[in-house]
Amino acid sequence: MSSLNGSGPRTRSHTISVEVENRPGVLTRVAGLFARRGYNIESLAVSTTERPDTSRMTIVVDADDAVLSQICRQVGKLIDVKAVNDNTDVAVVARELALLKVACGSADRPELIQFCDVFRARIVDLAEGEMIIEVTGNRPKIDAFIKLLDKFAIIEMARTGEILLARGLQDT
């Protein structure tokens, strides 16, 4: 704890995993706590888990070390929360899925297809003047892909938010 003494306001992205009981209102409790205490959520993904009574919320936050510790402890106090883990410095497998609807004339197509190949993205819909691309990966990869597509017009985009599991025997 004392190591955090005097930690500067340097913030970075952290992914925390919140295991919650599957009860009505639990999402509101967690989200409400973030809003009330002024924590920044970058993304939030909620999913079922291997146990039917448990859900997992994977939350990416932008915070310094002190705020991150507060977030974990405040969230951990909620009765419906079973566990909170900060996965920032843990070996993980992280994935996010993005769908992008891109405007593209036939002239642009070869280049786009080439980009998709490099990023192992898939073209899942094709229509006159536009296509929908699906890409999965960790956040940096998706960010990089989106940046690359900037030169084409992105008409619409949706991202799932990152989910992850810790590697090996470590709990997420």
Binding site: M1, S2, N5, Q70, K77
Partner: peptide, 15 residues
């Protein structure tokens, strides 16, 4: 009794 209080406003040397 509430660990979230330890370091909420002031970092303790010992919590």
């Amino acid at each position: 009794v509430d660990r979230a209080e330890l370091g909420k406003n002031r970092w303790p040397l010992v919590g």
